[in-house]
Amino acid sequence: MAVQTPTRTGTTEPQPTRQPPRNGPPWTEKWGGLFFVAPFGVLFAFFLLWPTFSGLWNSFFNTSLAGVQQEFLGLANWREMFGDPAVWDSLQNTLVFTAMSTPPLVIIALVMALLANRKGLLGWFLRFSYFAPFVMPATVVTLIWVWIYQPGFGLVNGLLTAGGSAEIDWLNTENRAMLAVVITTVWWTVGFNFLLYLAALQGIPDQVYEAAAIDGASGRQQLFRITLPLMSRTTGLIVVLQLVASLKIFDQIYLMTDGGPNYATRPIIQYIYENGFTSYRIGYASAISYMFFLVIVIVSIAQFRLFGGRKEAN
């Protein structure tokens, strides 16, 4: 076996110089690629793989945040989770938020992209206005919207009372708080989906529309027969991305309502956060994290099966 190296170099040397010259000895050809992957790989192992598995490990123990006492519990955390109504209530809040926020985040984004797909100053202004909220941090967004929803002298209630209606304490009313959060979220994040649609629209060649116009297709026919069908793959992608993004809801709700009133808006990630960092129940928080992780994986895979099938085929 050891003789192989000299023989190999012996055979490559006299070969005609058709091939580009090799850099360095053969072992860098074979293993050199690993060095390109290594920096990312190390970080990936440390800050993604390790916590993923230590979380699973923790879920079988009674670990506190300090990590002092570690008592093996077996499946006790998992069993407790299935009997804990707060887990299912907060999971339900997350799902309700996802169901309420996804349709407007997709439809409004499409409408915006159709409106803003034009040149000149007006196009610039429309794109700026539609996308601007997305570049701001959650905290800025929620500071502004808490002020807008403020009872008494906030903008929304100011308009309501000026119009003669009774005002609503949006963030402190159980069946209004989630709606208020959804409105804020749509305003804040629709810009990203808008950009994805816009990129797809700009990818449709002009000739397609020109040919249709020559064939006598009206603007409405062009929209429904050409533009929208061509957008279907993009829509599938956006729905997948949006569902997963909405499931991860935490920032806005934590900052606007702190999960209230009466836990009516508390999302599952906030419950994980509270167990881990307020009650210091690392093991229990890890078990819930894993359950939620599985939900996200199932949703993603189901979505990719539904919408991504064609893409995989290519």
């Binding site: 993604l48 993923t52 230590s54 979380g55 994980i272 992780f293």
Partner: peptide
């Protein structure tokens, strides 16, 4: 790894 949401790693990551 793309499927792993960073949000579910906050607790073990903080310990680390």
């Amino acid at each position: 790894g793309i499927l792993v949401p960073p949000q579910v790693l906050i607790v073990p990551l903080f310990q680390e």
